[in-house]
Design a protein around this nucleic acid. Sequence first.
DNA 1: TTGTATGCGTTATCAG
DNA 2: CTGATAACGCATACAA
Lengths: 335, 335
Amino acid sequence: MATIKDVAKLAGVSPATVSRVLSSTVVVSPKTKARIEKAIAELDFRPNAHARALVSKSTHTIGVVISQLADPFFAQMASSIENVAKKRKFKVLVSTGSLDAQKELTAIKSLQAQRCEAMVVNSKALADDVLIDLAQRIPGFVLINKFIPEISERCVWFDNIAGGKVMADYMASLGHTAIAVISTKERVYDATHRLNGIRQSLDAHQIALPEEYIAHGSPDYDGGRTAVESLIQRGVKFSAVLCYNDAMATGVISALTDLGKRIPDDVSIIGFDDVLLAKYCMPKLTTVKYPIDIMARKATELALSLIAKDQTLNQNAKDYQYRPFLVKRESATKR
Amino acid sequence: MATIKDVAKLAGVSPATVSRVLSSTVVVSPKTKARIEKAIAELDFRPNAHARALVSKSTHTIGVVISQLADPFFAQMASSIENVAKKRKFKVLVSTGSLDAQKELTAIKSLQAQRCEAMVVNSKALADDVLIDLAQRIPGFVLINKFIPEISERCVWFDNIAGGKVMADYMASLGHTAIAVISTKERVYDATHRLNGIRQSLDAHQIALPEEYIAHGSPDYDGGRTAVESLIQRGVKFSAVLCYNDAMATGVISALTDLGKRIPDDVSIIGFDDVLLAKYCMPKLTTVKYPIDIMARKATELALSLIAKDQTLNQNAKDYQYRPFLVKRESATKR
DNA sequence: TTGTATGCGTTATCAG
DNA sequence: CTGATAACGCATACAA
């Protein structure tokens, strides 16, 4: 690939002058400017971003760490980030951490080596103190889907406890008393929080939640199927199922339908997240909205504002907590 | 962030020596090595990737151009690419082109400025000659989901005509003769190819496909709904619907169900792609498999092999065509 | 308005 | 085994 020197030579000027027309910050005579532009086009010259980064000490890059891209929830997240980034002329560097602390850290370090100015990270496995340390070291570091008090102003998070409550409250209001819970077998904090919320709500409604009413599975369609099957196998009788996410909920629906149950007439199901899937499946899924697109946008804007020269945006150092709300569709009904 | 000089100073050695322990290519005395490593840890030093790129003339970066990340199909694709890249220690730079030629070109140019060594691009809008030109200029350039004869050895593509045939052949074999087609309103080549395949198959079976049996919509759930509704509104009678993709198919199912039709008893539906959704929805979607995950993996490996020093992998300069196959589930049945 | 010189952080070459 | 030094491609302060 041609360099700035090649362009300069072809146009019969110095590299500095070429640089000037590139950044168009200093005035150059129209005639030489035209000559240079012609040379640039002719050589298909593309300024080396690395050289620029080196001298300008800025890369205009935002790093993203997520557990996986294939999951619709995270894809939505990545997409929102990319959209905001693109508007601000930032490049996006993606790295996956796959629920593993070591991999998450490696991903972040790689992003640091690339001198990403901003970072939106969804850490599932890293210890709080590591993340706190990272946040202090990296100016544009923002945590998404997680809250750590010490760096609250860097956290864009969702109230999972309230989310659990919303699910359980709704089922209770529908008159259900035999409520099963299907959670993920991955040891992630949001699952714990949701379960806590469910417990709080059920306690308040004086509904029991025996341990055998809780089943675990991988956080997807198949996991939902196997979890609900294990529930039935061990003889648990329930009229409602609270699921960790929408994918598991569809698995539950499928498995129960196969067993001759009708949804929601025989069993009410509620999902979590409200990914596209929830609207598409049959019956349409009643679920808890997790506004990940809005949150991801917010996180990106926050990260970008943290590294902005003009600190006009940083004024509102308030809380970036988002709250769940119920999306009533067809999969849950009165007992 | 600390530089190599800082580390050198702290360890009491020259930058060159630090560089040597970083690349661990030359032997350094264990004692000084230990000192340097201590300094690196102490300063949390991370070698500047841009400086490295500049001097080594290699970035270990693969660029990805897709129309959008939020779509499950493309998310799957991006995910496959990322997985292969990670294994080869390559970073992934994502850029979206959103069906617009200008934006696609901008995305590619930006990736060039970043000196991406490899590129996997899914172009929907750029003209063939532009893409040919790009492929000639960029050694690691691979086109995915598109075939251009002039650069066939750089194309990993899917036979959409065969895909259209598979759909129509199957419906014909099921005894359907009143077959409607729901396509995307976006002017993309794959839609045209699929329609051509459908036409060829229907011709062969001597089944008519009047223009009014074809409806268009946005390539998603809502588009499927509105398209099938317009079909019904104009009084078209059909017992089978061939859809552009799975998302539209779910919209079609939903709209027809709302109208009291039963799937597949009253109307048979077939989708395209076989995204996760197809397995989850109810009834489970009969669809045409588009092995995007395998294709994306192949495309990435191809791109990486094109820039590899040892040309061992380039031997098989054969064709990278992938073919459709039918996934029979529940949404289509005999007339 | 334009050119020259310097430095960004790193690696590689060449001495020592 | 280690230390100067040059070079990568570009932007900018300083001269002209």
